[in-house]
Write a protein that binds this DNA or RNA. Structure first.
Lengths: 362, 362
DNA sequence: TTGAAAGCGCTAACAT
DNA sequence: ATGTTAGCGCTTTCAA
């Protein structure tokens, strides 16, 4: 093992070497305007020679600002968060902030606990798909600025996707393909998005004179989707809207294994457009969320809050969702063995045009 | 917006309320043995009533220990790291450490830069698949304990998977299926694993009297794998070993799109056994790394180092890899259109038994 | 066993 | 524009 270096130079070492007071060194770095240009230059040079790097912890003590933010996600293992994390990281980095990533492991209790530890070290918190109660979140928000994602909590700024619009698109799409009954595969009960999607489905089907059914809740995973297959076969419909892509994928696999063909026998639509959605066979039709943009927006808003900004509105920031039509949806068939009624081949590009790119909701 | 809480209580508030000196409060928390049991109890009670939580930053200043470690990964977007991250988080959490996740975005420069920022705030660093040079890594290791993953760096402790053994298993598997020429699809040149795998492939093919070819390097992504398809069709072999699953998946998709059937025309083996590997069609045969265990082992070793442990050996910790046989590999056919020579149907379970579960290498 | 006091490295008044 | 001097909240000798 290489030996640890002696000790990194402090602000005092630099001050001594440069022949100035430590406060001047401090200013030279934090408030360059408040110091003579030449002196500042000299100090920088000396500091560089000594290899001086300000200790962010020591800086945090008097200022109370750590330049760290906490990003809490429900499950690191869920690919849904990959792009969100990257978007958030990018926004944090560009503002000179460091991100503390916390995995709540789908447990509100663990989330609380982890937050408890991180709370004092961060300037703000992004809760991506929190499993905590609204009141617990509000409690946290009293101590540090908080932005929640995929959820609306009174008095807490949030960033969400336009679920109603996304569901509406999906329903229209399925309706055009001749499906008149749509089953919703529910996700975690603690999930705000789940409630929103189910409500949106009821509204959309009602308006379009279709019927909505509900199965679940299931785990928001491939296994959860597979578990739903049995239930679906007991209460079959020709179209399914799953809480997320993972469940949709699990459902399709279990269905296929049981001899039910997708999309010939049942059309399946997912949510999120995760990485694997276009890799599976059939590729998944899904309501895409702008994952990267959401992570970015959440962090940017959070940083604005830490700088003292007050939200101009109680309304969540709504980012547009988009229907991505792939192979898991197709025309409804009267029965499993007969050929398709009407046009068999669905023109992908034409349907893609039905895609929504709009925002704005309550 | 809810208003921020006034200010969290300090150690002095607790001391005053409990009628003891602040140093006693400090001891009561950090060194319970060094204080009268009753006093300690009393202090705890008072602290709890006040809602006192020690400020980790203030604590870090005099002690020099932050209870934070840094985990640097090459690409947050790459599902390969999901389980590693979770394993690392779990190990850190159980030891009372907080994890700082950093995304290097496949760039050695960005990695250096991010590390520069985090260096002073952490007690140690895990470099998962670093893209930095050996000397840069050694530089970092001079300042803080470092453990590298998937890589061997002189004088720096490391955790790796048994690549030679994994490659050997894959080659044996392909050999048994009748393939005698295997193409390796190379990944990033800065990747240690890439070099190791290619070397292992040469050795294994040599011993088994087969032939190894090499194509690339390509990006270690689905797009990279797709790009390799054209090259492969110019220099065709009946079997391919890809640098990772992402590339393998990309290759299969591009091949399939071009009318080349997998595994009928070409068998493909990947590396890593990422989440999507069993979701794609055909499901991917791949050399599985114990991702979770690796993350855990890396962090545990790192924490041992921070506690002053000195590595007992220069050799990397080697974790076993395993061949997972799925649908992307099959018997070699003499030509594309003729029926298989010999048994057509490959018995999945029988092949699964060929799976390796052993460790140990140099 | 407990208290008093001196820092850890940096910032932020307050002086000059 | 720069220097002086308190702290930030906690730990850690050193005394008592």
């Amino acid at each position: 093992m290489a030996e640890r270096a002696a000790k990194s130079p402090t602000i005092y070492d630099v001050a001594r070497a440069a022949g100035v007071a430590s406060s001047t060194v401090s200013r030279a770095f934090a408030r360059p305007g408040r110091v003579n240009a030449e002196t500042a230059e000299h100090i920088r040079k000396v500091a560089a020679e000594l290899g001086y790097r300000a200790n962010p912890l020591a800086r945090a003590l008097p200022t109370g600002r750590t330049s760290m933010i906490s990003l809490v996600i429900a499950d690191v293992t869920n690919p849904f968060y990959n792009e969100i994390v990257r978007g958030a990281q990018a926004a944090a980095l560009e503002a000179g902030y460091t991100t503390l990533l916390t995995d709540a492991q789908e447990s509100g209790a663990r989330e609380r606990e982890a937050l408890e530890r991180a709370l004092t070290m961060v300037d703000g918190i992004v809760l991506a798909t929190s499993r905590m109660s609204d009141s617990a979140i509000r409690m946290i928000a009293k101590q540090r600025p908080v932005v929640v994602m995929n959820r609306a909590v009174t008095d807490v700024p949030s960033v969400v996707t336009d679920n109603p619009r996304g569901v509406r698109r999906a329903v229209e799409h399925l309706g055009e393909l001749g499906h008149d009954r749509i089953t919703y595969l529910a996700g975690p009960e603690a999930s705000w998005a789940d409630g929103t999607r189910w409500r949106a489905l009821r509204e959309a089907t009602h308006e379009l004179e279709l019927h909505a059914h509900r199965l679940g809740p299931y785990e928001p995973t491939v296994a959860g989707g597979a578990a739903a297959a049995a239930d679906l076969m007991r209460h079959p419909t020709s179209a399914v809207l799953a809480y997320n892509d993972l469940m949709a994928i699990g459902l399709i696999r279990a269905l296929t294994a049981a001899g039910v063909r997708v999309p010939d026998d049942v059309s399946v639509v997912g949510f999120d457009n995760i990485f694997a959605a276009e890799l599976v066979t059939p590729a998944l039709t899904t309501v895409a969320a702008p994952l990267h943009a959401m992570g970015q927006a959440a962090v940017r808003n959070l940083l604005a809050l830490t700088r003292g900004a007050r939200p101009t509105t109680q309304a969540p920031v709504v980012l547009p969702s988009q229907l991505v039509v792939r192979g898991s949806t197709g025309h409804r068939r009267r029965n499993r063995t007969s050929p398709a009624s009407g046009t068999t081949k669905v023109s992908g590009p034409a349907l893609m045009a039905a895609t929504s790119t709009v925002a704005g909701s309550r």
